[in-house]
């Protein structure tokens, strides 16, 4: 019998072509096919395994972190599988699906002030971790190098191989920025000519769940603007239209931040020669947004 766990099901996601109206080819990394349904499985797995390896996650400690949902769901899934309790500081405005999934995995939710968004959750997690060091293992996804390294050692190499080294541009939005930073850093080491372009919400007030308008939030410790080759701003309205189109015309039922990434990638591709190859990330599944009225 194989001794496989859910931890082994993370990564090695397919790279799929998207039909576009011309210009460079666009490929999407189907990260929503990770076991918990989002790209965050990679970082959560890496941070938990590092905790176990270093001995910081031991002695009956619970995993504690701030999340807007997807990282929390990944922690909760791994925690349930490994018999480790999970406590998550989550802004009270996180959507219903996320809260229900977290409950299904048995995670404890500490709701934080919705007006303070991700920063409120981050500050609460820091406070709880500092007050109860004996009780919690606090991976701190915003300042844990295992977060971006999961993409440096995983996502980037997979994309490099799957494009047969032909990738010319990488585009992705940023929450903690771990996916963008880790993937971009490694791709540029593999080929310094590769351009890596962040997607950003067009307004600090937006509906791109999980994405952060970096100028108005506490930056992650590993946030690194030297990897930016420009920036593409997208609106929530246009991203939702693209999200619906992805389901209807490409068979990809994904979340709004994925729609935003594909929109940014196709806009960039339209300005590039046909032999260029643009890659972006499908961050999470559309099932995580079923309560949104956009589908009606």
């Amino acid at each position: 019998m194989q001794n496989t766990t859910i931890l082994d099901a993370v990564g090695n996601t397919p790279l799929l072509p998207i039909k576009t109206g011309g210009g460079a080819s666009v490929f999407v990394k189907a990260e929503f096919l990770n076991p918990s349904g989002s790209v965050k499985d990679r970082a959560a797995r890496a941070m938990i395994l590092d905790g176990v390896r270093s001995g910081k996650l031991a002695g009956g400690k619970a995993i504690l972190d701030a999340t807007s949902g997807n990282t929390g769901i990944a922690y909760a899934m791994f925690g349930a599988s490994m018999g480790i309790p999970v406590v998550l500081c989550l802004p009270a405005n996180a959507n219903k699906e996320r809260k229900r999934i977290l409950k299904a995995y048995g995670a404890e939710i500490v709701p934080t002030n919705p007006l303070e968004s991700s920063d409120g959750a981050l500050l609460k997690a820091r406070e709880l971790a500092a007050a109860n060091p004996e009780k919690y293992f606090y991976p701190d996804q915003y300042n844990n190098d295992e977060n971006w390294r999961a993409h440096y050692n995983g996502t980037a190499l997979e994309i490099w191989e799957q494009t047969e080294h032909k990738i010319t541009h990488f585009v992705a939005g940023m929450g903690t920025s771990g996916t963008f930073i880790g993937t971009s850093r490694r791709l540029k080491e593999l080929n310094p000519n590769i351009k890596t372009v962040p997607m950003q919400p067009a307004s600090p007030l937006h509906g791109l769940e999980g994405m952060r308008y970096q100028e108005t939030v506490i930056p992650a410790g590993f946030y690194d603007k030297s990897l930016f080759d420009g920036q593409i701003d997208v609106t929530t309205e246009d991203s939702k239209r693209m999200t619906i189109e992805l389901a209807k015309t490409q068979g990809l039922f994904v979340g709004i931040s994925s729609g935003a990434n594909v929109l940014a990638a196709t806009r960039l591709a339209a300005m590039l020669p046909e032999d260029n190859v643009v890659v972006t990330i499908l961050c999470d599944s559309g099932f995580r947004y079923l309560s949104d009225e956009m589908w009606d």
Binding site: A66, S68, L205, H206, E209, A220
Partner: peptide, 11 residues
Amino acid sequence: VMLIPAIAGGR
């Protein structure tokens, strides 16, 4: 009256 955006976070 409270104005609340969709959640923006560390995902």
